[in-house]
C-alpha cells in the first residue's frame, strides 16, 4: 500500500496521458472510420476496393506492430515527424497508429449498422431525388449510428485499454510504462496494479453504461 501512495503522483500523471490519448484517438478514429465506411459503400468500385483493402489489412495486423512501425518505420526510418520535441512526436505517432487501427474497426461496426437500415429508407431517399452522398449523410448514416451505439461503445472501451500499448511506439509516459518502471525499482506491487486497474475501470465502465443507455434511448423504432 505504501508503494501505491509513494508512486501515486507518477501513476496519476501516466494515467492522465492514457486519458488524453483516448480522447484524441476517439475523435480521430470516429471521423476516419466514418470516412472509411462512406468509401466502403460508395458507388465507385475503386473507392470500395481501396477502403475494403485498408480495413482488411489493418484489422488483421497486431496493434503492437502498427505502433512499433509508426515509430521505428515511419518516424525513424522514413523521417515522418510531428514535432522536434521527442515526447510530443512520440505522442502523435501513437495517436496516428492507434487511430488508424481503431478506425478500421469503427468502419466495420458502422457497416454492420448500415446493414440494419431497412431497404425502404434507401429507396425512399432515392425516390425523392437525393444523391448517393446526400442519402448517406441524411438518411443512412444517422440511422446506422443509432443502431450501433452499444457495439461502438465496446470498440471505444477496447481503444481506451489499447492506449497502454503506446509503449510499443517508444512513447514512455503513460501508465503501463510508469507501472513497469515502478516495478523495476521496487519489485512487483499488487496495490499499484489494482489501483491502475480500478482507474481504467472507472473510465471503461461508465462508457459501457452510457453507451448501453443511449443505445436504448436512441434505438430506431421500426
Amino acid at each position: 500500500m505504501n508503494d501505491l501512495i509513494k508512486y501515486a503522483p507518477d501513476l496519476a500523471a501516466g494515467f492522465l496521458v492514457n486519458v488524453e490519448l483516448s480522447l484524441v484517438c476517439a475523435v480521430l478514429s470516429l471521423i476516419a472510420g466514418t470516412v472509411l465506411v462512406s468509401l466502403r459503400v460508395a458507388p465507385t468500385p475503386v473507392l470500395r476496393t481501396a477502403a475494403a483493402t485498408y480495413i482488411n489489412i489493418v484489422r488483421n495486423t497486431p496493434l503492437t506492430l502498427v505502433l512499433a512501425f509508426s515509430a521505428l518505420g515511419l518516424s525513424d526510418t522514413l523521417g515522418l515527424s510531428f514535432s522536434k520535441e521527442p515526447s510530443t512526436n512520440a505522442f502523435w505517432l501513437v495517436v496516428l497508429g492507434l487511430s488508424a487501427y481503431t478506425a478500421s474497426f469503427v468502419a466495420e461496426t458502422l457497416r454492420s449498422g448500415i446493414n440494419t437500415v431497412s431497404l425502404g429508407q434507401a429507396e425512399a431517399a432515392r425516390a425523392i431525388g437525393l444523391t448517393f452522398f446526400q442519402s448517406l449523410r441524411l438518411i443512412i448514416l444517422p440511422q446506422a449510428f443509432r443502431a450501433v451505439i452499444a457495439p461502438m461503445g465496446s470498440v471505444m472501451i477496447a481503444m481506451i485499454k489499447n492506449t497502454t500499448v503506446a509503449i510499443a511506439a517508444g512513447y514512455l509516459a503513460e501508465s503501463a510504462f510508469v507501472m513497469r518502471d515502478t516495478f523495476d525499482d521496487t519489485g512487483v506491487s499488487i496495490p499499484i496494479f489494482i489501483g491502475l486497474v480500478l482507474a481504467f475501470m472507472a473510465i471503461t465502465l461508465p462508457v459501457g453504461f452510457l453507451t448501453g443507455r443511449l443505445s436504448r434511448r436512441l434505438a430506431v423504432v421500426r
Binding site: M179, V188, F193, V197
Partner: peptide, 20 residues
C-alpha cells in the same frame, strides 16, 4: 474483472509477479 483489465497491464503484472 479479467475482461476489463488492459491486457498489457496484466502481462506486465504477471511478468514481474512470477520471479518474486
Amino acid at each position: 474483472v479479467f475482461r476489463s483489465i488492459p491486457l498489457l497491464l496484466l502481462i506486465f503484472f504477471l511478468f514481474f509477479l512470477a520471479p518474486s
